[in-house]
Design a protein around this nucleic acid. Structure first.
Length: 411
DNA sequence: CGTCCACTGGAATCAAGGGTCT
DNA sequence: AGACCCTTGATTCCAGTGGACG
């Protein structure tokens, strides 16, 4: 008999209605990908030559989030490994550029998937890019294989670092004697290629595969397919899946969203001790997911960003529904003063505001007031829960006790 | 119609902090 | 220990810019 601990009561109380929770995770790769066989075939046709050691074309996979790009690619990767088990003619390498978004990180990641000898591994920082690159080329060439390198969320890396790495990777074939490398780039930004330099653009986009969003019916099929294996009979109310599908169809046919919704609904039901998952669970799951997404972002904000956001909140509470960069900046300065933090330049703060805007935490539109200047019109766009979360952040714990002095400090 | 405000956008640069290599 | 390397956040500089006012 195991001893009881603080979790025991939850273990016992929890009535498990989900048979296999892994299946509902969006990272889980099912054996069947409904409504994507055509895309799979399209890609397989392009990369099949690699099994005979011929270099396939580079591919650019374009499609909105949650249209199955990543799932299809890992499915193909799995199948490719199976098909290649005897000849060992090709190697499938996957890197998510959203997770590792620096040139160094990407090369580091690729290299260490290829280099099996632990003592030869590349350190995660310290080397020059040239050195990593030549080391990587050596290893690749030694293997005498076709390498298929999948770069997921490729536009993320591009946004931050330009197209240098893509230049490296697409030109690598010129220094190789035996092996060949082909690149499969995945992006959800259709306009991504416009910003690439022409040379890289033509290399990277030798072939393009476009993933359209799922429609309601397709989403429903996907959910049913997974639910079949994940749930026991009769725990799902009939309307749950159609409802999930409908909600996600509104959001550009995002299948990941749909699955998250379903999984979260099941979670909530379990936690509640309910035996039937209903539309009500879906509804609160939706709220929770949206909230979690924002608070996740907030957590990763720098202290400076939080301070800027705090300034916007403070201004809003003082009755300004919209404000300018200047307004935010002056409040920002007093807050910095209150919590004794270094003050950034206005230019930088304007930049931080733009970042917050891109994250969807505030609304900022550039607006011109004619002769009275041009500025951003800033508006708070954050749920109450998040605001109180920011306010209770320990960075601002001194703020409440701080009384702004009246214009005594001039600088 | 031109002016001119109060910023925006972009680029170049710096400094600090992670680390390796010899 | 000192020389280098990459990343990140901040700073500095500078050339725009939309449109109300005169």
């Amino acid at each position: 008999m195991t001893e009881s601990n603080i979790f025991t009561q939850y273990m016992q109380k929890r009535n498990v209605i989900v048979k296999n929770k892994k299946i509902l995770q969006s990272s889980y790769i099912p054996d069947k990908l409904p409504h994507r066989m055509d895309k799979i075939n399209e890609i397989v046709e392009i990369i099949a030559p690699s099994l005979n050691k011929d270099k396939p074309s580079n591919i650019l996979v374009i499609g909105k989030t949650g249209t199955g790009k990543t799932a299809v690619m890992s499915y193909i990767g799995k199948e490719l490994r199976k098909a290649d088990v005897e000849q060992k003619n090709c190697s499938y390498i996957y890197v998510n550029c959203e997770v590792v978004d620096t040139p160094y990180g990407i090369l580091y990641n690729i290299s260490n998937q290829i280099i099996t000898d632990p003592s030869k591994r590349i350190p995660f920082t310290g080397w020059s890019l040239d050195k990593i690159f030549s080391e990587l080329s050596d290893y690749i060439d030694k293997e005498d294989k076709i390498f298929i390198i999948v770069l997921d969320e490729i536009d993320r890396s591009f946004q931050k670092n330009g197209d240098d790495i893509f230049y490296y990777l697409t030109t690598i074939n010129e220094v190789l004697q035996n092996s060949r490398v082909s690149i499969i780039g995945i992006t959800n930004n259709a306009k991504f290629t416009e910003f690439l330099s022409p040379k890289i653009k033509s290399r990277l986009g030798e072939e393009k595969v476009i993933f359209p969003p799922y429609n309601v019916n397709q989403l429903r099929d996907i959910l049913y397919e997974r639910a079949k294996d994940a749930f026991d009979e009769g725990v799902l109310d009939d309307e749950v899946i159609p409802y999930c599908a409908a909600l996600s169809a509104q959001e550009m046919g995002d299948a990941r969203r749909a699955l998250d919704l379903l999984r979260m609904s099941a979670d909530l039901a379990e936690r509640n001790g309910d035996v039937l998952i209903t539309a009500a669970h879906v509804k609160s799951a939706k709220n929770k997911i949206e909230l979690d997404a924002v608070s996740e972002v907030i957590k990763t904000l720098t202290i400076q960003s939080k301070t800027v956001l705090m300034s916007v909140i403070k201004n809003t509470e003082d009755g300004m529904s919209t404000m300018t960069t200047g307004d935010v900046y002056s409040t920002y300065k007093t807050i910095c003063d209150a919590i004794s933090q270094s003050v950034l330049t206005q230019r930088r703060v304007a930049g931080l505001i733009s970042e917050l805007d891109m994250l969807g935490i505030v609304h900022a539109r550039v607006k011109s007031f004619g002769r009275a200047g041009r500025t951003k019109e800033i508006e708070l766009n954050t749920p109450k829960e998040i605001i109180s979360m920011i306010k209770s952040d320990e960075v601002f714990k001194d703020l409440d006790s701080y009384k702004p002095q009246k214009q005594t400090t001039l600088m």
